[in-house]
Nucleic acid binder design. Structure first.
Lengths: 127, 127
DNA sequence: TGTCTTGTATCAACCCCTTGACACAAATAG
DNA sequence: CTATTTGTGTCAAGGGGTTGATACAAGACA
């Protein structure tokens, strides 16, 4: 399951756990990394992996369903919605949002375009 | 004052306001955008600008002082510490962290190096 | 000196997040 | 059908963040 492998909590983050889970899965779906029909780990399973209470993961799943990204059935688990939800957020758009966020943060440091680009290239080489 | 112009709250963020303020100012300092000796806006001033309670901004300032990034004096205001704190985080390192964070997020979407770079270039052109 | 500014401290009140436990409903697997 | 799995609902408890008001302490300023 891609979700188990990909969801990682940042314990130092001020973002509440349920929101980290929700956000990461939402992006995995929007980007097409989690294909329609794919089953997410069970609430208890993911909660155990991330060391969270089941209710916390359940809340993340509920918000994902409310957003139309996911369909849940008791006993049947939670699966990625077949209808690529209204979300016009294709993978490229998600990536574009990430890039834009990077630019916003970098420009707050008064970085030039060249510096911003060079920093990414350097990170690509080292990571 | 650079701080007034640069600190922007994201009301949709799950990150608590005091932490957004603290983090943004910390990065402005670490990156050298706010030079040593520069005076930050007063607690009440910044609180007014950001539509926060004075105590919320005060907490951000307190944590900045605890981190050695800032020196406060009652009646005298809050200024960027002259001693570039232990922080080895030069501007380039902060930028590198941003770039690394971008790569981490992008790779979660299974983006290739080329895509990651292209997305930044596209964002530079459009923004 | 006296006044203004600024940071700090405290308070009660409110809301949100998390936990851990338990029970329940519905689908699946045998 | 039965047992298991899975999502949901509830609950009390505790911790954190925010507000708004008030009061105080200490430097700046005239």
């Amino acid at each position: 399951m891609t979700a188990e492998r990909s969801v990682r909590l940042d314990p130092r983050s001020a973002v509440p756990p349920f929101e980290q889970v929700r956000g990461q899965i939402a992006e995995l779906i929007a980007a097409g990394v989690l294909p329609a029909g794919d089953r997410l780990p069970s609430v208890r399973q993911l909660a155990g992996d991330l060391d969270l209470a089941a209710g916390t993961v359940a809340r993340a799943y509920q918000e994902l369903e409310a957003a139309g990204l996911v369909v849940t059935r008791r006993g049947g688990g939670t699966r990625v919605a077949t209808t690529p939800p209204v979300t016009p957020a294709a993978r490229g758009q998600v990536l574009a949002e990430y890039a834009a966020a990077y630019l916003t943060a970098g420009r707050r440091l008064a970085a030039t375009d060249e510096e911003l680009l060079a920093a990414v290239q350097a990170a690509l080489r080292s990571g």
